[in-house]
Simulated assay, not measured.
Amino acid sequence: MTTFTLTSPDIAAGSTIAQRFEFDGFGCSGQNQSPVLQWSGAPEGTKGFALNVYDPDAPTGSGFWHWYVIDLPASVTGLPANAGAKGGANLPAGARQIRNDYGIYAWGGMCPPPGDKPHRYIFTVHALSVDRIDVPDDAPAALAGFMVNAHTLAKASFTATYGR
Rank of each mutant, 00 (worst) to 15 (best):
M1D: 06
M1W: 14
M1A: 08
T7K: 00
S8C: 15
A12M: 11
S15C: 04
F21M: 10
E22P: 02
G25K: 05
S29C: 09
Q33S: 14
Q33A: 10
S34I: 10
L37K: 04
P43F: 13
P43R: 02
T46G: 05
F49Y: 15
V53T: 06
P59C: 07
P59R: 09
H66W: 02
W67A: 04
W67P: 07
D71T: 11
A81P: 12
A83F: 15
G87F: 15
A89R: 12
P92L: 03
P92S: 08
A93P: 09
A95I: 13
N100S: 11
D101C: 00
W107Q: 01
M110K: 04
P113T: 09
K117P: 13
P118I: 10
Y121T: 08
I122K: 09
F123A: 03
S129P: 05
V130F: 06
V130D: 05
D134P: 12
D138M: 06
D138Y: 07
P140I: 03
A141F: 04
A144S: 00
A144Q: 01
F146E: 09
M147A: 11
V148H: 02
N149Y: 11
N149I: 00
A150K: 13
H151V: 07
L153W: 13
T159I: 12
A160C: 05
T161L: 00
G163D: 04
